[in-house]
Design a protein around this nucleic acid. Structure first.
Length: 390
DNA sequence: GGCGATGATTCTAA
DNA sequence: TTAGAATCATCGCC
């Protein structure tokens, strides 16, 4: 490193001492000006000139010794090192070299010091926290997965077993993660201490400023931080795989109860002209059936498409529910129509007469694959016609 | 075990 | 975002 410094090429006999005097750092040298050792009384002018000359020679000697130290044998070098360390000019020269070093080689790196937090790392940290791998152990991830599972289908007795399995596996991941993290942190700390000791040791023979040591520590931490990022990434992947496996259990479906299917079918056939329940209607249906809103949406999605694909097959079912609805409406005659009563909205719509004749006002899926309200039959008095916004 | 029914998921288009 | 369509995976009946 010294070779890169501007003073590196200066030899002791080529006036480099003079070159240094022009450097601002030389004020430091002057400020530690040693007391004259060979004072000759009554010769002040000569004394000043001699002192200046002596100082330059001192610095030149030190530099020469530094430059040639690597050419010497180990014993020689050790001895020289010791001599240099004890030299009266050493602290001043050291501070000058540190100053020069700060101002040249390392000044460019200052911009790198304050980096914004890595967004990827932030994302990983957040995920690990959300999954309950990082941070306090509260079964967060398991709870999250369980809530995800329950929200889409309800928890069966089986799922509690899967839940404990999930928790156990997540706990394993958590343990491994923390063990590895601890290892990395310990290694980082050990390595940092080692490097700091090394630099401190080196600082006795070469200019190493405290700032440089700090910078080196920061570099080490950055390196270990990137290793930690990899660990976090791997942990996230493991959690994702575990989670997807756990959530796949949702595929183990249960058929809806007969009562739930009936409620849904009643709504579907009574709103056959426009079987698209509103969010409120879905929520009400979900409540009635003991399922989730998304299951209601799935059911209607499946029902619409399967009905459209094979209307003939569903005619009988449609007749059945039309009759049921009609009977219900008769029984409720005079009673106010509630949004979720499978009331008279599309009563008989799309439902052929019981004798099997296709009605002229057949409603529901059109041949073009849409649910247009063509051939809308005259609404029964008091009915809401094709308004399915309930 | 085969097969149809059915709930869930995924992809695409509007 | 939502619906349609295709598909998957499981259930339940025979």
């Amino acid at each position: 490193m010294l070779q890169q410094q501007p003073i590196a090429g200066n030899g002791p006999n080529s006036g480099r001492g003079l070159a240094l005097t022009g450097h601002p750092g030389m004020h430091a040298l002057n400020s530690v000006h040693p007391p004259p050792q060979h004072r000759s009384d009554g010769d002040a002018g000569l004394e000043g000139a001699e002192n200046g000359h002596e100082n330059r020679r001192d610095i030149g000697d030190i530099l020469q010794q530094i430059m040639t130290i690597t050419d010497q044998s180990l014993d020689e070098a050790q001895a020289k090192k010791h001599a240099l360390n004890c030299h009266r000019m050493k602290p001043a020269l050291f501070s000058v070299l540190c100053e020069i070093k700060e101002k040249t080689g390392l000044s460019m790196r200052n911009t790198q010091e304050e980096e914004p937090p890595d967004p990827q790392l932030v994302r990983l940290d957040n995920m690990l926290l959300a999954e309950g791998v990082a941070g306090p152990e509260k079964g967060g991830g398991a709870a999250a997965a369980v809530s995800a599972a329950t929200s889409s289908g309800g928890m069966s007795p089986d799922s509690s077993l899967e839940h404990s399995d999930y928790k156990q596996k997540l706990s394993q991941i958590r343990t491994i993660y923390h063990t590895e993290l601890e290892k990395y942190e310990q290694a980082c700390s050990e390595f940092t201490t080692h490097v700091m000791n090394l630099l401190r040791e080196q600082s006795r023979t070469r200019p190493v400023s405290p700032r440089e040591i700090e910078r080196m520590v920061a570099i080490i931490h950055r390196k270990f931080s990137s290793i930690q990022t990899q660990l976090k990434q791997s942990t996230c992947e493991a959690v994702m795989i575990l989670r997807s496996r756990f959530l796949d259990a949702r595929r183990k479906r249960r058929n809806f109860s007969k009562q739930a299917t009936e409620v849904l079918n009643e709504y579907f056939y009574s709103h056959l002209s426009n079987p698209y329940p509103s969010e409120e209607a879905k929520e009400e249906l979900a409540k009635q059936c003991g399922i989730t809103v998304s299951q209601v949406s799935n059911w209607f999605g499946n029902k619409r498409i399967r009905y459209k694909k094979n209307i003939g097959k569903f005619q009988e079912e449609a007749n059945l529910y039309a009759m049921k609805t009609a009977m219900g409406a008769t029984q409720r005659e005079g009673s106010p129509h509630t949004p979720n009563s499978t009331g008279s909205a599309d009563l008989f719509l799309g439902v052929p007469p019981v004798n099997g004749e296709q009605p002229g006002y057949h409603m529901g899926a059109q041949t073009n694959g849409t649910w247009q309200e063509q051939n809308t039959p005259p609404s029964p008095p008091g009915s809401e016609g094709s308004d399915d916004s309930d």
